[in-house]
Amino acid sequence: MIKDITLGQFFPGNTVVHKLDPRMKIILTIAYIVSIFLAKNMWSFIAVVASALLLVIVSKISFKTILKSMKPLIFVLAFTTFFNLFWTTGDVLLISFWKINIYLEGVVFSVMMILRITSLLVGTTVLLTYTTSPIMLTDALERLLSPLRLIKLPVHEFSMMMTIALRFIPTLVEETDKIMSAQKARGADFESGSLMRRAKALIPILIPLFISAFRRADDLATAMECRCYRGGDGRTRMTKLKLALRDFGAIILMAAFITGIVFLNLTPCPISM
């Protein structure tokens, strides 16, 4: 039943976006987020939306997947739109009845907010989670954050924990399934009754799950010790990350994009925030 959980959805591929150095992708994503928040008027928003669409096309991720990923966002979008629409005041009154006043500025603001949030989500998922394997991501994070080791931050340990967590998610999901079946076979009922009852019914699943997780952790620690693990010091890596020409190309493109946004913000425009 819970087999189809896909965490950090990754769609393997062979496009330029996939091939970019994961460290570069993290930096690019941050730059992209900044650029989205820089956008102030219609022209720059057109540029932002176009860039998000372009990313989707280049990465060959299907639009269906993108639309599906936006489903959980509907609530957030509705919420912000609601507040922006009814609470923004301005000069041009569009609709007014009873106590509700809707101004043109409010409409503009909500539309731009929707565009901003959706391109933010599309851009970051395409650049990072959809096109980078989780292990590449943790690896890149470890390398990017490695300077922080100087101030005694356990960067390697964090990334090791992430890797192990990712490794054990499917194992623990499988185990949960097994325990649930075992408890069901003994007459446990997870589906009926009040919310409180159903929450209580989960206890006989959680306890064995926790015990087994601790046992696994113990076993894994022993196995890691046997394989000479002694923390991040003196450890080498099999995969070498090397910046290619395309990585420099990407960063130049991103710099141009941000400059473009700033420039467009300064151009006179009938509609702006």
Binding site: C228, R230, R235, K240
Partner: peptide, 23 residues
């Protein structure tokens, strides 16, 4: 309970990586 990494070859590399062998 002995496999550390999410990809087979990454896991096999775990031991030699700990030993500080070159890439």
């Amino acid at each position: 309970n002995q496999l550390v990494a999410t990809i087979v070859e990454e896991d096999i590399a775990f031991g030699p990586e700990n030993l500080g062998v070159s890439s």
